[in-house]
Design a protein around this nucleic acid. Structure first.
Length: 234
DNA sequence: CCAACAGTTAGTTCGAAAGG
DNA sequence: CCTTTCGAACTAACTGTTGG
């Protein structure tokens, strides 16, 4: 997935009200960028961080920049846009590049299921079980090389796991797909200390037959693509 | 009177649904 | 068919309401 417009570097001044981030551009101008991540962004919204913004000249948009990346200034990046994982995974699914999820003729997004939820991807094909795939964007890293999810309490995430478990019990494939939007991690684990309820729901889902998948992304200011699988250590 | 709980709000995106 | 509209998603902080 390529960014539609070339990103520009900036420095984060502060993030506030979930969706807003004041930044200083290279020419010294201070602007407010849209933060496409309503999560806690633990460790990723520190004032002074180098960030990359996507400019736009869309008159319908109030904010002329969107925050896409954190640049750790050591060659590594973290993607903060929560809509990127779904787009990048869709491209990879269509290209047949996702191990374990290849050869499905039908790829549909945002299909209603469960109790008023939507599944990120419903994969189907002749002669095989439907596969319900839920994608989560992983950005938390507290120990070197170890990516973790979630980064705060997520009741919705736990609900998604229960609904995936229900699909697995009723004979479908159900996949929890963690997409790590960081280039500096090789292993993945659950942040059970941050949300014990989520960790419990995860174990229940796994015992019910929900498959766990986890892949890294390759990130540059040009775009984001899927990378290799991570070792899951739970 | 205060704590606990419920509802609301913020901006953008995506895809589904509805309308022409 | 294409265009427009609509709802859901994301979470924290705030306001308003309720109950002990």
């Amino acid at each position: 997935m390529r960014f539609p417009s070339p990103l520009v570097p900036a420095r984060l001044i502060r993030r506030y009200k979930r969706f807003l981030a004041d930044c200083r551009l290279g020419d010294g101008r201070e602007i407010t960028a849209h933060c496409a991540n309503p999560g806690s962004m633990l460790g990723l919204a520190e004032p002074g961080m180098k960030v990359w913004l996507e400019p736009n000249d869309d008159p319908a948009k109030k904010l002329k920049y969107g925050w896409r990346l954190v640049d750790h200034e050591n060659g590594h990046f973290t993607g903060v846009d929560t809509s990127v994982p779904n787009r990048a995974l869709r491209l990879a699914l269509e290209a047949g590049d996702v191990p374990g999820l290849q050869g499905y003729a039908g790829i549909r997004a945002e299909i209603r299921y469960g109790e008023n939820s939507r599944i990120d991807f419903l994969l189907s094909g002749p002669g095989r079980r439907d596969a319900y795939v839920e994608v989560k964007s992983v950005t938390l890293c507290r120990a070197p090389g170890l990516a973790e999810f979630p980064d705060s309490v997520t009741a919705r995430g736990a609900k998604h796991l229960r609904e995936l478990a229900a699909m697995a019990r009723s004979g479908n494939r159900a996949v929890m797909f963690f997409l790590v939007q960081r280039t500096d991690c090789q292993r993945f684990s659950l942040a059970s200390d941050l949300d014990p309820d989520y960790a419990a729901a995860f174990e229940t889902a796994r015992r019910a037959g929900v498959e766990i998948m986890c892949q890294r992304t390759r990130i540059t200011p040009d775009g984001v693509t899927l990378g290799p699988p991570l070792e899951i250590v739970i």
